[in-house]
Design a protein around this nucleic acid. Structure first.
Length: 486
RNA sequence: GCCGGGGUGGCUGAGAGGCGUAGGCGGCGGGCUGCAGACCCGCAUCACAGGGGUUCGAAUCCCCUCCCCGGCUCCA
């Protein structure tokens, strides 16, 4: 069955057919590395990570490019974000970039986001950008004014096709930067002039300067993925002007349309219903949230809503995600325990066969949800049902070994696809020695229970819980688990 | 003003004409338990913003109204 993808350009779900059979080129707009990674970034990159994992699961060879913006991204006041921050902190701009870029990767690694195949930096592609700008001037789509180069929006008739911004109405917008040299207020900068003492500048045919923000993505996307690419993604707030301008630049440059076959946009993250904004003081850094919640829970929280809908951050939801994660890990742990204690070579009973076919049905439903525009929220509902069905299976007194293995591989495969841990914490966090020690403690406690010395038994359980070891008394035996740790 | 996205049971959050009254959390009841937890089963006046319409059938399509959020050269 074909994957369906919602295309922001057409505003409908389309059957996914890459430009080249079996190969998918995807470009996602990366962060401007002048500050800490926040939860909004995480939302977008976790979502695309799940999308890419699914495409690969469906047999595509995926080539993933995500840029690192380290120059050219201006604030409303017209200041380069990297340069401005570096000047205030009295550090070399590239040192600032290096620091936040490493922290960005660290945060993404923690969240289980796989690294792109290429993470091109804008500053490493100045030559390519200058070349592109030269060509745009030659083709009549751009013009130079006193060391600045602007894209002439009036020359590109398709302008506005992605954002549906009506070019005539833009003039009414109050926030348009009216650079004195612009022929038209709607034109945007490809190259910005820099003074001789400016810290981040390059030589160009138009003198010292630095590139505009939009041209970097166009140039790097085309350099590594070709003149036409399958998927280009980012959050919805990039649709205008960033992606609109990218289309204008790319299609003006190559004359080939469309530049991007499928535009995919993730919804924004809000905090307690409000937009996350520095001015509101409600920025949530990834590193801060990871001090309170496990990476897997943060990831599960993100995937619990569809990637296109607005995701509202609230403490309760993270707590919920945390307990949901435990629920999934419990199933996994129970399978492992069952493999050791209940696996049987006897032929499967009709009840076991019924459970297995139920698992297959749920597994297919999961896949169908993911095929339908990567609906992780719906897929998760089937994952929880898989978990519950498995719990029923492992409650049986003895279990057919192949069925048990099959159940385990279904659960693990779904977890991996979503980028969630597929190993219960016990294995990771313990050693043979620890396991043996805990077994001794459990034996002593059970001896106390036999004597009906419940005070001692409860005290042992309480103290172990304090160090993260949870005991569970089941009929006939006691098992233990490590809390969290995933 | 223009362009988008929404309003679903106590809370979240899928569903976009019938094909599962999704799922999770919380609550209540039961099972298993010395207790707890985990796990399983069950329950919750008409759940679909309001009003019209189309249809054999509407949360889902159409029209009108109300409300919320976002974009409109800072944003992932």
């Amino acid at each position: 069955m074909a994957i369906r993808v919602y295309n922001s350009l057409s505003r409908v779900k389309e059957d996914f057919k890459p430009l080249h059979e079996g190969w998918v080129g995807i470009y996602v707009c990366g962060p401007t590395v002048y500050d800490w990674t926040h939860l909004g970034h995480a939302r977008t990159y976790v979502a695309f990570d799940a999308i890419i994992r699914w495409l690969e699961y469906r047999g595509y060879r995926v080539f993933y490019v995500q840029n690192i913006t380290d120059v050219g991204h201006l604030t409303e006041a017209g200041e380069d974000k990297v340069v401005g921050r570096a000047l205030r902190e009295r550090v070399e701009p590239m040192a600032l970039v290096e620091f936040y870029m490493r922290e960005y990767f660290r945060d993404m690694d923690a969240l289980g986001v796989r690294r792109p195949d290429i993470s091109p930096r804008a500053t490493g592609h100045i030559i390519d950008m200058i070349e592109a700008i030269k060509q745009l001037i030659e083709k009549g789509y751009a013009y130079e004014v006193d060391g600045n180069v602007f894209f002439d929006v009036s020359k590109f008739t398709d302008y506005g096709k992605l954002s549906r911004v009506r070019i005539e109405e833009m003039i009414a917008g109050a926030r348009i930067d009216v650079h004195p040299g612009k022929r038209d207020p709607r034109d945007f900068a490809l190259w910005k002039k820099a003074s001789i003492d400016y810290p981040l500048k390059w030589v160009s045919p138009w003198g010292y300067g630095f590139p505009g923000w939009h041209i970097e993505c166009t140039v790097m996307a085309m350099k590594y993925l070709g003149e036409q690419i399958d998927i280009h993604g980012g959050a919805v707030d990039l649709i205008f002007p960033h992606h609109e301008n990218e289309i204008a630049q790319a299609e003006a440059l190559t004359g080939r349309k469309p530049f991007v076959k499928y535009w995919m946009h993730t919804g924004l993250l809000t905090v307690n219903g409000e937009k996350m904004a520095k001015s509101l003081g409600n920025y949530i850094r990834v590193r801060d949230i990871l001090e309170k919640y496990s990476p897997a829970a943060v990831r599960l929280f993100i995937l619990s809503a569809h990637y296109r809908s607005t995701l509202d951050y609230r403490e309760e939801k993270l707590n919920e995600a945390e307990s949901n994660m435990k629920r999934l890990m419990n199933s996994l742990a129970r399978i492992e325990e069952a493999k050791i204690e209940k696996a049987s070579d006897k032929p499967a009973s009709s009840e076991e066969r019924q459970i297995l076919s139920e698992l297959y049905r749920l597994s297919n439903s999961f896949d169908e949800s993911m095929d339908d525009d990567f609906n992780t929220a719906e897929a998760l509902s089937f994952l929880f049902e898989i978990s519950r069905t498995i719990n029923k299976l492992v409650d049986l007194p003895s279990i057919n070994k192949p069925i048990l293995n099959e159940a385990e591989s279904i659960l693990k495969s779904k977890l991996r696809i979503l980028g969630l841990p597929d190993t219960p914490p016990r294995r990771e966090a313990s050693s043979k020695l620890v396991e043996a020690l805990i077994d001794i403690i459990i034996d002593i406690r059970n001896e106390a229970r036999r004597r009906k010395d419940y005070a001692t038994a409860d005290e042992i359980r309480r103290r172990l819980a304090l160090i993260g070891v949870k005991l569970e008394d089941l009929p006939g035996k006691t098992i233990w688990r490590i809390e969290g740790g995933y």
